[in-house]
């Protein structure tokens, strides 16, 4: 996709009243939608749209589909909150899942998930796909803070995160991956993260872990660590640190680095750790460092 076809996130068509595509209800695994890769595979797109009504943020669209059950939580100030609940095991091999999150002008939305997402093999060796599409409009804010994704033995999952920001959008996004449950080799997990601001790419990354990805557990990629994750912070009213910050004294306990992207006012923390808890600690430390700069505190945005 090139810059000319990228939509600016301000004028977003509101996909309302979409017919439910999953026939079996929230707990069914009946085939639905186009191109079922397997008779029991699920094709589902859940949607969240938040907007600002002049006083506060409302969430006029919460569209459940397939394994996604979305729940409104109590707002925190002007910030609306939504939690993604998993209503069945997913993704399984062959599933095609998508989650669209749109925050319109001046909206403030936090999206979390209730539990880790677990990629399982299912009845087929076909790959599953999980596409998260995020659009944040002018002066709008999104916190996308899901629980980690766990890649289990023999699963194959290709996930994408496509983020379109306006020049004045704010984003805090955290994503973590655990490669195999305790003592288990992982399946194959690929992740493509593309972030555009005002239509221009500011971050493009692709990772591939678990066989057949070459040397993914070797000394250049993850080493012995089975948890990895990132924290991305884009904030136009933010005196972003210009220097990198190394986090973690003992590589055996995991380590991370908080770095400014080439694009201004955008930071990313990259972490590897033995366990998800240690990963979370590293990313939390990175977030604290990001906001250590004096100006961010004076503005009292948070």
């Amino acid at each position: 996709m090139n810059a000319s076809t990228a939509q600016t996130p301000t004028a977003i068509p509101a996909p309302v009243n979409e017919p439910l595509k999953t026939g079996g209800g929230p707990h069914g695994r009946r085939s639905a939608g186009p191109v079922p890769a397997h008779p029991s595979a699920v094709t589902a797109t859940a949607r969240i749209r938040a907007t600002h009504n002049g006083r506060t943020t409302t969430v006029p669209l919460l569209h459940n589909d397939g394994p996604f059950h979305l729940r409104r939580l109590r707002s925190r100030g002007e910030q609306a909150r939504v939690r993604v609940l998993g209503a069945m095991s997913a993704p399984l091999g062959g599933d095609r899942l998508a989650l669209d999150i749109t925050v319109e002008t001046r909206g403030r939305l936090e999206v979390t998930s209730a539990a880790a997402t677990i990629a399982l093999r299912g009845p087929t060796t076909a790959p599953a796909t999980y596409d998260v599409r995020i659009r944040v409009g002018d002066h709008a804010t999104l916190y996308w803070l899901p629980e980690p994704l766990i890649s289990t033995r023999d699963s194959i999952l290709h996930q994408t995160f496509t983020v379109d920001l306006a020049p004045t959008s704010r984003l805090l996004m955290r994503e973590g991956q655990l490669l195999g449950r305790s003592g288990e080799p992982p399946g194959h997990l690929t992740t493509r993260l593309t972030v555009r601001r005002g239509g221009r790419p500011i971050l493009d990354q692709h990772t591939a872990y678990g066989r057949p990805a070459p040397a993914w557990d070797g000394p250049a990629v993850l080493g012995t660590h089975h948890a990895t994750g990132q924290l991305l912070l884009v904030d136009p009213v933010f005196d972003a640190p210009q220097e990198s910050r190394v986090i973690g004294d003992d590589p055996a306990e995991g380590h991370a680095v908080l770095t400014p992207l080439a694009a201004p006012q955008a930071l990313i923390a990259t972490a590897v750790a033995p366990t998800p808890a240690q990963l979370r600690d590293l990313l939390d430390s990175a977030l604290a460092y990001a906001y250590e700069s004096p100006r961010a505190q004076v503005e009292g945005q948070r």
């Binding site: 090139n2 493509r192 593309t194 790419p201 990772t207 380590h255 991370a256 680095v257 590897v272």
Partner: peptide, 19 residues
């Protein structure tokens, strides 16, 4: 466009490069 080009990343090379 450039989106077609590989973007493969290695976390340890990024982390230890800064260290």
């Amino acid at each position: 466009g450039v989106a077609a080009l590989p973007a493969a990343s290695a976390p340890l090379l990024d982390i230890t490069g800064e260290q």
